[in-house]
Design a protein around this nucleic acid. Sequence first.
RNA 1: GGCCCGUUCGUCUAGGGGUUAGGACGUAUCCCUUUCACGGAUAAAACACGAGUUCGAUUCUCGUACGGGCUACCA
Length: 540
Amino acid sequence: MIDHKKVRVRFAPSPTGPLHMGGVRTALYNYLFAKKHQGDFILRIEDTDQQRFVAGAEEYIIASLKWCGILPNEGVGFAEGPFSPYRQSERKDLYKTYVETLIRNGHAYYAFDTASSLDQLRKEREQQGSSFAYGPQNRHQLFNSLNMTAAEVLQRLNEGTPYVVRIKVPENDLIVVHDLIRGEVEMHTSQMDDKVLFKSDGMPTYHLANVVDDHLMEITHVIRGEEWLPSAPLHVLLYKSFGWESTMPKFAHLPLLLKPDGNGKLSKRDGDRLGFPVFPLNWTDPLTGEQSKGYKEQGYIPEAFVNMLAHLGWHAADDQEIYSMEALIEAFSLERVSKSGAKFDPDKTKWYNEVYLRSSTDQHLAMLFLPIVQEQLTKSIPSRHLCTSAGHLIDAESLLAYCNKAVALVKDKAQFINEFWDLCNYLFVAPITIDTTILAKKWKPPYETFFIKFADALSTLTSMEATQAEKLHTAIANDLALKPGEVMQLLRIMVSGQGSGVNLFEMIALLGGKESSTRIEQNLKKWLQTLSTDAAASRQ
RNA sequence: GGCCCGUUCGUCUAGGGGUUAGGACGUAUCCCUUUCACGGAUAAAACACGAGUUCGAUUCUCGUACGGGCUACCA
C-alpha cells in the first residue's frame, strides 16, 4: 500500500517541568523525519494533568526548541495552523463527544469505583503476591455501568456521582503494533486492562487525547519514546474502536537515553551528580527555586548539541560523525534508529562542542565572547591599553574587533566559549601577579639586559606583526649571545604573568609595542625586587 | 511478580552466514612544538552465555542470563 498522504508528525510534551534532553531528541527525530519527507512538524502541548502543571514549562519547551533550531510548522508558540488549538486543555470539550461515541458503541463504559476502593484492591492483591488489573476478569464484579441497568447509570450520572470512562478491552484478541523500528509487536488483549480514558475531572487521559488528536490533526507517524511501547496496543485498539484503522498513523518507538554509569533512565539527578546538564536551557523551579543548568548557558553551541543528540540512537551507514542539520535531514531514516537504549556520554558531547567551536568563524565567536569580556572588564580594574586616554573603556565596536583577534588565538585551546576568558584574560587586563616559581627556576642575571633592550625596542613600535616581534626577539638575544629559546618562557611571564598561553609573538603583536614594553618593564622591576629581598633574607 | 523491548571494544556505533569485526569518544605512547593546545601517527580494547540449523554462526532459531521500560483517574 503506497501512502500518498503528506507526512505529518508531532512532538507532544506535557508542561510538567523543563524539557529533558531525551525529549529534545524525540522532537529532533520528529523534525528530521518531517523535513526529510517534506512534511509538517507540529508542537502539541499535552496539558491534561492539572495537578502536575508547572508554570513556565510551556515557554521553556518553546524556547528550547528555538535554541536548537527544531522549529515546528504549526503549534503552540509557533504558527497557528488549520488544526488549532494545539493545547489539549483548550480541546477539552472535543474529547467528551468522542468518548461518548465509544460508550454508545460498546467500546467503553462508565466506572464509579472510587480511587480509594481501587487502591484497597491493589493493596490486597499485592499482599497475596499478585497484582490488580481492572479488566475482563473482574469488571463484572466492580462498580460500573456494565453491571447496571441503563436507568441506574442515568440516575448516578444525574446525581453527579463522580465517574471515569474505561475502555472495554476485548476478551480474546491479538493486537499487533507495526513498529518502524522494532517490527511487529504483539500483545494479547488478555494481558491488557481497561485503562481510564476519561477522568472524573472532565479531562481525557493521555491515551484518549493522544489518539483523538493524532487522528484529527492527520498525523501520519507517531515517533515517541520507548516508554510508550507497552501502551501502543491500547492505542491501536482505540483506533480500531473509533473505526479509524485505515488512517491509523505508523508507530516508531525510540530507544531510551540511559545514565552514563550504572543502570536506568537518564535523569536530572545524574546531571547533578556527574556534572553535566540534562536540560537544553537553564531552569529554575517556580515552586522550590531549585536551579538546573542548561547546555546553552554552559557554553554549548546548539548545532553541536543537536549533532550529539542525533547520534544517540541513530547512525548513518558511513563513519561520518559531524552532521549539520541539513545533512541530518538528508541522511535520516527511522530504519537506522537503533533498538537498544543509549548511555549518554558527557565526554563525547564536549568533543562535539570542541569540533564546532574550532570550525566556527572568529567573527561569530567574537560576538559571543564580547558580552563576557564586557562583563569581566566592568568587574576588574580596567586594563590600560583597553582604555581611552580619558580612562574610559574603549567602545564596543573596537572591543569587538579586538575580541576577534583574541578569539583567533585561543579558540584551538578551548572546548567552550566560557573558557575563553580564563584562557586569555591577560590579553585584556594586565596581570597582577607573575609566576615567580618558573622565574626562580630559569632566571640568569644576563637576562635582565635582554628584557630592558627588548622592552625598549618594543616601546617605539606602534603596530607590528608577530613575525616582527619574533625577529626583534631573536636579534636582541643573539646580540647578547643568548639562545632565543632560553628566554622565551620568561618573556611570556613578563608579558602575561603566566608560563603558558597563546602564541607568544601573536600575543605581543596584539597587545601592541607600548603595552607590551610597559608590562615587561613593570614585571621585570617587580621580579628584581623579589630577587633582592630574597637575597637579603637568605643572608641573614 | 506479570507483560513488552533489548544485548558488537569502557561509551556511541558500523557490519552481517566465511571479515585482520570498521569508525568515533575516552585512555596510553610517540611525532610536531618556546608553553598549553591543535594536528599527525600508533597501541590496548568488543560480537553475554548455552544449545540448534549449517561445510561454516558474531550474523538465523530457541533457551538462559543480564539490562531496560510499563504495570495510576501521570504523561
